[in-house]
Design a protein around this nucleic acid. Structure first.
Length: 291
DNA sequence: ATTCCAACCTGATAGC
DNA sequence: TGCTATCAGGTTGGAA
């Protein structure tokens, strides 16, 4: 679900609710796929710690604590990080929504998908990590420790430049979209923004990376930065699950040029947007504007 | 060394 | 109404 813009908006909006507040108690669900660090260890290690900084690396959030340990959070496809003050129907399943009055739909009660619950000594708003599909990840790193997942990441996608992107495409037979999705090449791009950036650059997702011209690589780098920055400015894309930590929806879904618009007219030329599988993901593009 | 592909989960939705 | 199949903002690890 969340890509770089949604993670960055989450970071900016939850930081004021997290930093400087000493954790008093932690609740978790049972051991499962989301816990790289066993939940029992999170319950004993986190209380007493105070978050001092919240950083982002690609799609990962890193909460730094006063003892120099780091809680790494990845939202996977359906992960949500939010405050107990947040109210949004997106925090409930459709079945839960159906059984509740409109008023009750606004109030989130931690459910079986709420894998981490942080309470604070000041008694203020709690912070929750909820993830229905459990593709998200929680990992606590002790001071000075790293992890292969983080070390594999390439440069943050917001820092891409045409020269290095062009170099990365040389001698690669894979479709250009596969390169954009490869987090070791650039960290932070996912299925939506890969398609949107390729649309801006007028390059088809299935084109072999090695067949891009230097000009196209430069247009693609500019397109990547443009769509990511514009999405951050509008609060990210709220297409199915994404909700900001305060419960607000993003607005970027209203500006999509191709993603999820199969059959609808291209805003530039009117041709129906096409969808096909590229690199095992659905890819959306205008058959007329993108070569 | 790349590229492919199944696996990890749950829920919504489309079709019969 | 209910069942089945398909799809979903992601990443990994091992096979080809």
């Amino acid at each position: 679900m969340p890509e770089l813009p949604e993670v960055e908006v989450t970071r900016r909006r939850i930081a004021p609710l997290l930093l400087g507040r000493r954790i008093s108690a932690v609740e978790t669900t049972a051991r499962s796929y989301v816990f790289i660090t066993p939940p029992g260890r999170l319950r004993t290690a986190l209380p007493g710690l105070t978050p001092t900084a919240l950083d982002r690396l690609g799609k990962y959030l890193l909460a730094r604590f006063d003892d120099e340990s780091t809680l790494v959070v990845h939202l996977g496809m359906t992960g949500q990080l939010f405050s107990s003050r947040a109210t949004s129907p997106r925090l409930l399943s459709a079945t839960a929504r159906a059984s509740l009055s409109p008023d009750a739909q606004r109030d989130f009660e931690p459910d079986s998908h709420t894998h981490l619950r942080l309470r604070f000594e000041d008694g203020g708003p709690e912070i929750y990590f909820r993830d229905v599909r459990k593709f998200g990840k929680l990992l606590l790193l002790a001071r000075g420790r790293g992890h292969a997942r983080l070390e594999r990441l390439g440069p943050d996608a917001l820092d891409v430049d045409g020269t290095s992107l062009f170099a990365a495409t040389r001698r690669r037979r894979a479709p250009i979209k596969a390169l954009l999705l490869d987090q070791s090449v650039l960290a932070g791009i996912g299925n939506i923004y890969a398609d949107e950036a390729l649309s801006l650059a007028r390059v088809r997702p299935g084109r072999r990376a090695s067949r891009l011209t230097r000009r196209e690589a430069e247009a693609l780098a500019a397109g990547i930065v443009h769509v990511l920055e514009r999405s951050i400015a509008t609060g990210g894309s709220s297409i199915s699950d994404y909700v900001a930590p305060d419960g607000r929806d993003g607005r970027y879904q209203d500006e999509r040029r191709v993603y999820g618009r199969e059959g609808e007219p291209c805003h530039a030329c009117g041709s129906p947007i096409r969808r096909r599988m590229v690199a095992q993901r659905s890819a959306h593009y205008c058959p007329n504007c993108q070569k």
